[in-house]
Amino acid sequence: MEGTNDYMKRKIRILVAKPALDGHDRGVLVLAKAFRDAGMEVLYAGLLPTPETVARIAVDEDVDVVALSLHNSAHLSAFPEVKRWLKRLGASDIQVVGGGIIPPSDKKKLEKLGITGNFGPGTPLELVIEHVRKVAKKKWKSDQ
């Protein structure tokens, strides 16, 4: 089955969220459906969760990956905040993947903080899915 890691025989659990005052949810809903069609277990954090809420859901639900999307340019504050909360909750191994309207200079900053992907508009879903699978494997290896 697609999305099941042959090596681990495990389904990827992924949380999608928009952690700021940004109700434009077309992108996250499309991504959520695409992740599900790719065989992942998808959780959606609803609208306007704080970074802390996102991190807590991620920990409570024991997800492998958190996928964050913002279109209001709050990514530089909100994405790292989710990452910090994960660390505070002892879950630094949960992978954080970003997307939205992210200029190249911000992309570098985010990547330094361990937030990967940072996909822009028009990115094929296939590339995003491929990236999520890659980082999920990384997390599973660290679980062992």
Partner: peptide
């Protein structure tokens, strides 16, 4: 920004 090379590869 997506990686342009892999993007056009994915679409081609």
């Amino acid at each position: 920004m997506p990686d342009k090379k892999s993007q056009s590869r994915a679409y081609r």
